[in-house]
Design a binder for these strands. Structure first.
Lengths: 341, 341
DNA sequence: TATCAACACGAAAACGTTTTCGTTTCATTT
DNA sequence: AAATGAAACGAAAACGTTTTCGTGTTGATA
């Protein structure tokens, strides 16, 4: 293979100095027209492009932002990424996406690699395992090293940085309240294990709504899904209660879709016998039968806001910039899986 | 903010040379235990990490591979990326993901930025607009500059590089043949505009299957979806034919899902009145009602193979490495949207 | 006492770029 | 003739790292 063309090689070709070549390619007035022309022609012919590494090293910035997300197969995250791309590109920044696969180790590895000159700042949604282990030293290191950090969706309270989050508490409340309003008496919730904070917040919202409507909280109606086990089997227990639920709130669309599938298989009519409400407005919600009512999360907006906050921090690095927390509200999208009012 | 700690700063701190610090941190025998200890302790205390840019510049490699995909919201691409991540990480490589948004300009922009020292090689699935414009000079430039390139799924025949593709021809054949086997007489196909090669290949497979079963090809049953317009409206025309179809093959799961939704809304029973078959085994297929039979594409495998090919090229860059093309076969996954045999 | 080896460290090049600050040459002005 | 100025280019530092090749000091050996 032919190795890449550099300033040095061009300089050698014309027996001039490297600085002359650099200036010639920048059309500097310091260089004679004659020399400029031949150098520019040569560079063009050989498709010369300045080496980004060298440029970044010199400029001490990369015009790239790093994003670490737990999973890319989740519709919500792809929406966030789209939002990130939009705003980043508009501001002349590139985006580098890494996946932690919800693993603590991979999260640390990715951060280490991004932190050392590769990007100007990092946007992250914390891996489940990290939340579980509560080991946050890699975030502290990052901040210590002066690299701007913004967390979104799955954030950590103890870490001081800008954050963008869904109003999960309110979303949970909204969902549950609506189920109550349409007449559900026994509302179950399908949520995540305790250590997943967003799941917990939605559960809190659920409890608040019950309390607000003077409906007693029933522990039996709370199902914490273990994703390593068969999900359908776990949902089954809900339907074999003496008093099975007449409304189900799933803290994500997968759980809701599973619940709906199982209910219909058992002969329930959705929404007549049981109403089902999900969280996150993904493809499943739109294409399931019946279509799924859901709490929309506006991932796109979250991504955009995250970049805005990050770029602020990147630019005001020297001044004592105050970290901000933006809360993105949720919306109820009513479709066919819930009874009409 | 405190700026990052470097070898130079450590050297200054102890009044030694940079090389001494570098060696000390590498535990070189050239440095006395005493000096090594204090330098290592200091470095650890200040969380020293070598700057990747500097390292990459020196080593002339980044241990990073770039991936350019048209869209991240497609389930198939997320599967491919997962496969890429797996193999890349196993081999000590990082992955940088960029989106072209199916735009020619963004594809070129991303390639330019990746090409200049940022990554050791690039994996790409071509943007729709690029296929339409047939402007491939950016790929030629890349190869000319000696940067290994692997294309997957949406590939370009004229560009000489390694490729990983789905057996779209066979997949189209398989799907259509199955619809014929279960007794469909009038099989429609929902495909993409002409310039999308994968759509075209699946259409070819469809034609082959018809021919093989001596069923005359009917132009009216071929619907080329324009995604800028209302998809449901376009599907409508199919059902208002004098002889509407009794089987539909959608070249992706979205088209199939739309068709199924529309058919059921018109009172058709799926699969009794009409059988529907999709392409790509995504979430929609699994959660729709009825669940969607489909041609599975094995995105994960494709991603893995793409990385394997790329790493080969990166390592054998000097020798005259022969480009390879790997074809990944498809599988028929039969669910509820097609009649049983 | 001269020689040699081991030890502990420093200088400098290299990766590719930009930019500041010379330096040379030649022509013009006083 | 001396001074000034512009034009055209080069040298070198800087970004942060690694590594090869010195070099000076010590201690031991012949």
């Amino acid at each position: 293979m032919k190795s890449k063309i550099t300033l040095k090689k061009i300089a050698k070709e014309f027996d001039v100095s490297i600085s002359t070549v650099s200036k010639a390619l920048k059309d500097s007035h310091e260089i004679s027209e004659e020399v400029k022309e031949k150098i520019q022609a040569f560079a063009k012919y050989y498709h010369y492009k300045p080496n980004s590494l060298a440029l970044n090293l010199r400029n001490q910035k990369t015009k790239t932002i790093g994003v670490i997300i737990p999973q890319i197969v989740h519709h919500f995250f792809t929406k966030v990424i789209s939002g990130i791309e939009q705003v980043a590109n508009k501001n002349g920044y590139n985006v580098m996406i890494c996946m932690s696969m919800d693993s603590y180790e991979k999260e640390v590895l990715n951060m280490d690699m991004l932190a050392n000159g590769v990007v100007d700042g990092i946007i992250v949604s914390v891996a489940k395992e990290t939340e579980e282990k509560e080991n946050y030293s890699h975030f502290r290191d990052l901040i210590y090293n002066g690299i701007p950090l913004v967390m979104f969706d799955r954030v950590i309270d103890e870490i001081k940085c800008s954050k963008v989050l869904t109003n999960d508490l309110d979303g949970g409340y909204l969902a549950t309240k609506h189920l109550i309003n349409i007449g559900c008496k026994r509302i179950a919730i399908l949520t995540t294990p305790d250590f997943v904070t967003v799941g917990n917040l939605r559960l809190e919202g659920y409890k608040n709504a019950l309390e607000n409507s003077l409906i007693p909280f029933d522990e039996d109606l709370v199902l914490k899904i273990d994703e390593d086990k068969n999900i359908e089997e776990q949902i089954k227990t809900l339907f074999s209660l003496k008093e099975p639920p007449d409304g189900i709130f799933g803290v994500n669309e997968i759980y809701a879709a599973y619940a709906m599938k199982y209910a219909r298989k058992q002969g329930y009519d959705v929404p007549e016998d049981i109403s089902i409400l999900g969280f996150t407005d993904g493809l499943i919600s739109q294409f399931s039968t019946p279509t799924l009512s859901t709490v929309a999360q506006h991932g796109n907006t979250m991504g955009q806001k995250a970049v805005e906050l990050l770029l602020n921090e990147i630019e005001y690095q020297d001044t004592d910039y105050q970290h901000q927390t933006k809360v993105v509200e949720t919306d109820l999208i009513l479709r066919e899986s819930t009874k009409k009012l």
